[in-house]
Computed example of a mutant assay.
Amino acid sequence: MEHSAWYEPIKAQLPDHYFNKINQFLDQVYASGTIYPPRDKVFAAIQATELKNVKVVILGQDPYHGPGQAQGLSFSVPNSVAAPPSLQNILKELRDDIGVKEDHDLTAWAEQGVLLLNACLTVPAGQANGHVGQIWEPFTDAVIKVVNSLDQPIVYILWGAYARKKKVLITNPKHLIVESAHPSPLSAYRGFFGSKPFSQANAFLTSHGSTGINWLQ
């Protein structure tokens, strides 16, 4: 990450020792048992989406905690693994909003400028939220603040109560916040279905002189 355009602006938001703490945490937890995603995918969100290209932020809470699912991008899993229920519901809403995406790996979104950021970047196998509150939130809050400072139009898609708490970090009037219930089966029928986040995002981007996302890619 040191060679990325993300590094210096994120570092400027955090105490000098913080990156050392992250490395120590990673060394400790990956030596202690099975952790997701694979260690080389922990920072995949900011590796896949260049800072200057960010157009949309989709904020998740923490990675999937089942074998082969987490790939460092919020809500995304490889096509070789079945789509979890929340991702299935995201694809249903996409179908009703814009059209059918033929696969469920969201890497192509990330490569177009969709920052697929989890607030917590690691999880122990089988333990949802197992690393919440331990190390990651200052880092991912710093990422959100860096994106907030950008001049280009950006859409923040916030699904569920946890993601919506991050609105306090989004203060730039040039940006748009799209929020609804979480796509989880427990809440999707309470306002996620029918919210049309994908067409909303593209309408905002194109109206501000940017190009929309090809969500079906």
Rank of each mutant, 00 (worst) to 15 (best):
A161Q: 12
K101T: 07
W159E: 09
V56D: 01
P38K: 09
T34Y: 08
Y36C: 04
A12Q: 15
G68V: 01
A108G: 06
V54T: 06
F25L: 02
A48E: 15
L73Q: 11
E137N: 11
V100N: 11
N118W: 00
F193K: 06
N202P: 08
L186I: 04
D96Y: 07
S199A: 07
Q69I: 00
E8N: 13
Y18E: 15
A31F: 08
H131M: 15
P9R: 14
S207G: 08
D103A: 09
P197I: 02
V42I: 10
H3I: 08
H131P: 07
I144M: 11
K41I: 05
A110G: 05
K145A: 00
Y30C: 06
S80Y: 12
I213K: 00
K52C: 03
P124I: 12
Y30T: 07
R164P: 02
V81S: 10
K174A: 15
N202H: 11
G99N: 03
F193I: 10
E137Q: 13
P9V: 03
N202R: 07
F193T: 09
P138T: 05
V146Q: 09
F19V: 06
A125S: 13
G130W: 08
F19L: 08
K41L: 15
L94S: 02
T122L: 11
V54N: 07
K196Q: 15
K101E: 05
S180V: 02
S86A: 10
A163C: 13
K55A: 08
E2W: 12
S210Y: 01
E50Y: 05
P183Y: 05
A12R: 14
A161T: 13
R39T: 03
S207Q: 12
H208E: 06
E102Q: 15
V81F: 12
L106A: 08
I157P: 01
G130T: 10
I177R: 14
H3F: 09
A181P: 08
G99E: 02
N148F: 12
D96G: 15
P183G: 04
P84R: 10
L176E: 14
I90Y: 02
S210M: 04
H208N: 12
V29W: 01
V143E: 11
K167I: 03
N202W: 09
